[in-house]
C-alpha cells in the first residue's frame, strides 16, 4: 500500500496525536511517588506547626530532610505540570492560546521548582 508516512513515523505508531502513553504513565509514576512523600510532608507540616524558624531551619538543614523535601518539590511540580497540561488540552482549542499557556505553565513550574530547590540548598548552607 502506498503511504505518505515516513517509515519512522509508521514504526512510532503515534498517529495524529503526536504522542503515546508517555503522559499518562508519567502522571501515574509521579502519583505513586507522591503517596509516601505527601504523607511525609504532612508529618513535617504538623511537626513544625507553631514552632520557630530555628526549628524549621534545623530540621530542613538535615541532609535526609533536605533530600526528601527536594524530592517532594520535584515530584509535586512534575505532577502539577502534567495535570495543568491536561486542563489546557481539554478547554483551550486555539493553537496560539494553547502554545502560550503551555509555555507559561512550563516556565512557571520550572521557576517555582528552581526557587524551592535554591531555598533548600541555601537553608542547608546557612
Amino acid at each position: 500500500m502506498s503511504t505518505a508516512q515516513t517509515p519512522l513515523h509508521k514504526v512510532q505508531g503515534m498517529g495524529s496525536s503526536h504522542s503515546g502513553t508517555g503522559h499518562f504513565w508519567h502522571e501515574r509514576v509521579t502519583a505513586v511517588a507522591l503517596i509516601p512523600l505527601s504523607l511525609w510532608f504532612a508529618y513535617v507540616m504538623l511537626g513544625l506547626a507553631g514552632t520557630s524558624e530555628v526549628t524549621a531551619l534545623q530540621f530542613l538543614a538535615h541532609p535526609w530532610n533536605a533530600l526528601l523535601m527536594g524530592a517532594f518539590v520535584c515530584f509535586t511540580l512534575w505532577h502539577t505540570y502534567l495535570g495543568l497540561q491536561v486542563v489546557v488540552d481539554d478547554y483551550i482549542h486555539t493553537a496560539g492560546a494553547k502554545i502560550f499557556l503551555m509555555l507559561l505553565i512550563r516556565f512557571s513550574v520550572i521557576a517555582t521548582g528552581a526557587t524551592c530547590l535554591f531555598a533548600i540548598v541555601r537553608i542547608a548552607a546557612l
Binding site: V87, T115, C116, A119, L126
Partner: peptide, 19 residues
C-alpha cells in the same frame, strides 16, 4: 489539583522565607 498548583507557589514562598 489546580488549587494545589497555587499551593506549590506558596510552598516555594515558605521555603524562601525560612532561608
Amino acid at each position: 489539583g489546580m488549587g494545589l498548583s497555587v499551593g506549590a507557589v506558596i510552598l516555594a514562598w515558605w521555603l524562601v522565607s525560612i532561608s
